[in-house]
Design a protein around this nucleic acid. Structure first.
Length: 895
RNA sequence: GGGAGUUUAGCUCAGCUGGUUCAGAGCAUCUGCCUUACAAGCAGAGGGUCACUGGUUCGAACCCAGUAACUCCCA
């Protein structure tokens, strides 16, 4: 036989992927069929395929392929996200390599470089997805910054502004000093960090003239120091921005400070001591430095107490002239230096170790600086309500549903969305400023000019060139929240055939970490612009972790290269590997051995094919495999129902496992072994034909999981001539037929019987080649005669006798209540036999006791459901029957 | 600090409305096999105080309360 012994996926995968592409099997255009639509969560253009993508896209492809094979018009829309911060960072880095500084470029020049970069390096990830077998409709590939989609973003901004949902305001934002942009709360990663807590003394202003005893406070000994108060801070470099010291009005230790002022060390600026119950008395010293410009809570406290805001930091995190000292130093360098200065002047009381949560930028990993700045915001509460309702009413299902609570919690406490970013790569905010500072919102300069002219008390000499467009761009999510609509041009042309047909989409497959960034906002946009949710089900995948439970990341180096995995195990093997370890919504502990298991499975299928391929047919032979054929048909139909149910509940790994066991155990290990002709003997045509049909059906159910090997085998001449478009990818998933449950349960008994015989061989070291004889004493209603062929073949039995008496001197075993005997030339050890039977007897007696205890318990008899009692009675009968047989065996041995 | 979740075999997970023979699967492990499809394989075996403590019930992995450990989200 010239077919290789192991399955070699490499050239097969390329061959079939190209074939599918050439024959436009991924292409979807609206027709009379029911649509099944998924829009891809657009990966960043800067992205390279990582394990998270592998999981996510494998799941999408399985669902898409299965829907296609169920006769639906499957449409999987691919595309990429322009990812402003990440991409701009890459472009800036590229320019730096070429010796170009972004600062020296004009905005249009920079954008030219950026597009150049995008064309060259962007979207590699989509090419990589093809290796996985992703059956996306590539003709529909979109990019969130292409013209139509950008236009949709701008129109959306204008629409929401006119509705009063977008406003401009000074807010404390999360400032990324490295990316020099504001980032949203969701883009801030909090990490536990070891820090220092500095205890710093502030001199009480004019304290040298005060005499402690002149205070009404009697307990002078409680006053730690009348000259100083001490505060604790992790950020000593911000003391120059202090606006006040705050104490709790109930704090007895500090009554003497009420109404006083203190001096900031080193710069000697006077600030008041204010009172607020906000301060926790038992944290630090009970004195809190209030720094409105550099801390969110302090800012709010400052607003309440009308404190000035003194910003001492530049955009890049260095100190500015407001700081008076250490101007130009980076905030972290300044922290160290100021500690030294404070120490030198005796202001530093002590330093303690301290751990706390600090925010880091998701994109640049820089420590986030709270910063006051003028930003654009989108009001959320009005839009959040309907978006929450979709999920609570079940119009959108979250899978698994444990995320509903999380979703609700977030939506009910939602804050306004900061949508401006201080970058160039992205959609520039369509706000146009007049020389007097007022602004208008318009799509073009011309529109803006028209509007500006109509503003009240506008000087008549205003020229179009006087308008200055806002420098900022919009947050990337402000374009991706439109994705399910914009990919079908639902903004440009709201009633076009595509959007009417494909929207709302069916399933969204994404990671729980972007449930709020993206999923929630898409629901808002779907409601706002289409009056309909953008999808019906949201399948939330887990996070791919390594074996030790650590998140896979570049910096840890614990993430395998997906393309290398595909190279090593084949795309089908990797797909199976991903799914095997991924129950819905749970994180998955990925390990390469899962891919190995997938590869082995592909190999198993390959070899089953080699077996069948090697058979010769003799049409004159009778069919003596009817039982096997009927059994497998029933078993297959039964498995189909299970698989269908698993898919219905989005239990993909279980659907795969059911398929895996059906193919490996039922089809290969049992069915093929049952019908396999003896070496170099032909097979009858009826069995052969049935087997070919079964194999074809097996390929159909395998296809969504393992598209390549199933397509490859599908086209083998074994299955007859195939027309050009007769491909597994568009074959129909078989529908379940009749299930003979009696046959299924009887075959389970026969399998046990065969296992028992093999077990005896194993324990008595009898070669599988040596044929044995079997005597059957049937006490049940099963007709063993019908299974004689199967038993003979799989247990290597030369003859089966049906007896009514026990067989003496033979080794025996029981299956259900039927008895079986195998006469052995070898001697039987009566002692061992007796001890084995006694063990069984003891077990049965104990079991019977517990059953009887139930049956004689009046409360059980009166409370339990009748069918439960019936079950107990049957258990009792069964056990008693078995016990009787064992007793007989024991007394026979005793003779 | 507030909220949610998890804990079942060495590992990853099922276990539905509390009730089939004192918990199932896959992988891994052990034993024996290169048996003419497959050693990426075949046959067989072992492996569990269902986190802990109480409670409800005729009956608890499952329901309730508490404890512990871990994870995530928000502040």
């Amino acid at each position: 036989m010239s077919i290789p012994k192991t399955y070699l996926p490499k050239e097969i995968e390329d061959k079939w992927y190209n074939y599918w592409l050439d024959h436009a099997f991924f292409r979807s255009i609206p027709d009379e069929r029911e649509p099944y639509t998924i829009v891809i969560p657009p990966p960043n253009v800067t992205g390279v395929l990582h394990m998270g993508h592998m999981l996510n896209n494998t799941i999408q492809d399985v669902l898409i392929r299965r829907a296609r094979m169920k006769g639906k018009n499957s449409c999987w829309v691919p595309g990429t996200d322009h990812a402003s911060i990440a991409t701009e960072a890459k472009v800036v880095a590229m320019l730096k390599d070429r010796g170009i500084n972004k600062k020296d470029l004009t905005r249009p020049e920079f954008m030219t470089y950026a597009w150049e970069w995008k064309e060259k390096y962007g979207g590699i990830i989509l090419e990589q997805l093809k290796k996985l077998g992703a059956s996306c409709d590539w003709d529909r590939t979109r990019f969130t910054m292409e013209d139509d989609l950008s236009e949709a973003v701008i129109d959306t901004f204008i629409h929401l502004y006119n509705k009063g949902l977008i406003y401009r305001g000074i807010r404390m934002v999360n400032w990324d000093p490295q990316g020099k942009t504001a980032v949203s709360d969701e883009e801030v990663i909090r990490k536990e960090v070891n820090q220092k807590l500095y205890y710093i003394r502030y001199k009480v202003s004019g304290s040298e003239y005060q005499v402690a005893s002149s205070e009404s406070n009697q307990s002078n000994d409680l006053i730690p120091d009348t000259q100083y108060l001490t505060i604790a801070t992790t950020r000593p470099e911000t003391i120059m921005a202090d606006a006040a010291i705050c104490i709790n009005p109930n704090d007895a230790r500090y009554f003497h400070l009420h109404g006083k002022k203190v001096l900031i060390p080193l710069i000697n600026r006077e600030i008041p001591v204010i009172l607020d119950e906000y301060v926790t008395m038992d944290f630090g010293t009970g004195c809190l430095k209030v720094t409105p410009a550099h801390d969110l809570n302090d800012y709010e406290l400052g607003q309440k107490h009308n404190l000035p805001v003194i910003d001492i930091l530049n955009d890049d995190g260095t100190l500015n002239e407001n700081a008076k000292i250490l101007i130009g130093e980076d905030r972290f360098a300044a922290r160290k230096k100021i500690a030294v200065l404070l120490e030198a002047d005796g202001y530093l009381e002590k330093v303690e170790d301290y751990t706390s949560q600090i925010g880091f930028s998701e994109r640049t990993d820089a420590v986030i600086e709270p910063k006051l700045s003028m930003q654009w915001f989108c009001k959320m509460d009005e839009m959040a309500k309907p978006a929450l309702d979709y999920v609570l009413k079940g119009e959108i299902k979250l899978i698994p549903d444990k995320f509903i609570n999380t979703y609700r919690n977030w939506m009910e406490n939602i804050k306004d969305w900061c949508i401006s970013r201080q970058l160039w790569w992205g959609q520039q905010i369509p706000a146009w400023y007049l020389p007097d500072g007022r602004f208008v919102i318009a799509k073009t300069r011309e529109d803006a000019f028209e509007q500006a002219k109509n503003l009240k008390s506008q000087i008549s000499s205003l020229k179009s060139e006087d308008l200055k467009q806002d420098e900022d761009v919009l947050d990337t999510w402000f374009s991706s929240w439109l994705w399910p609509i914009s990919v079908f041009d639902g903004f440009k042309d709201p009633n076009n055939a595509d959007i009417d047909y494909y929207y709302p989409t069916n399933d969204l497959i994404t990671a729980p970490e972007i449930l709020f960034f993206w999923v929630a906002r898409m629901i808002m946009a779907g409601h706002e612009f289409r009056g309909q949710a953008p999808f019906r089900n949201v399948y939330l995948t887990g996070i791919v972790r390594d074996k030790l439970g650590r998140k896979m990341s570049k910096s840890l180096g614990n993430s395998p290269d997906p393309l290398e995995l595909i190279e090593k195990y084949g795309a089908d093997g990797v797909r199976v590997g991903m799914l095997l370890c991924s129950p819905a919504g749970n994180d998955l502990m990925f390990d390469e051995s899962y891919c190995e298991q997938g590869r082995n499975f592909a190999n198993k299928i390959w070899n089953a094919f080699r077996l069948v391929k090697g058979w010769d047919v003799d049409a004159t032979l009778p069919n003596d495999n009817e039982v096997a054929i009927d059994w497998f048909r029933s078993r297959f139909n039964q498995a189909l129902i299970e698989i269908e149910e698993n898919f219905g509940q989005y239990r993909l790994s279980e659907a795969l496992m059911t398929t895996y066991k059906l193919v490996w155990d039922d089809f290969c290990a049992w069915y093929l072994e049952m019908i396999k002709p003896a070496y170099q003997k032909p097979i009858d045509s009826e069995t052969y034909d049935a087997t070919i049909r079964f194999f074809e059906d097996v390929l159909r159910i395998l296809h969504p999981f393992m598209p390549f090997i199933s397509e490859e085998l599908w086209h083998d001449e074994l299955f007859g001539e195939r027309a050009e478009y007769n491909c597994c990818i568009v074959a129909q998933i078989p529908t379940s037929g009749e299930i003979n449950t009696q046959l299924l349960s009887e075959v389970e008994i026969i399998k046990q019987l065969i296992s028992q015989v093999r077990n005896i061989r194993n324990s008595k070291q009898i070669s599988p080649k040596e044929a044995l004889t079997l005597s059957v004493k049937a006490n049940s209603a099963i007709s063993y005669k019908a299974y004689e062929q199967v038993i003979k073949k799989l247990a290597n039995i030369s003859s089966v006798d049906f007896v009514v008496e026990k067989l003496q001197g033979a080794t025996n075993f029981m299956v259900s209540t039927d008895e079986f005997y195998i006469p052995l030339t070898e001697n039987i050890d009566p002692v061992a036999e007796i001890s084995r039977l006694k063990k069984d007897k003891d077990y049965l007696l104990g079991f019977l006791k517990s059953v009887n205890a139930k049956l004689t318990n009046e409360r059980f008899m009166s409370n339990a459901k009748p069918e439960i009692i019936e079950v107990e009675l049957r258990k009792k009968d069964d056990a008693e029957a078995k016990l009787k047989i064992i007793e007989e065996g024991l007394s026979a041995l005793a003779e």
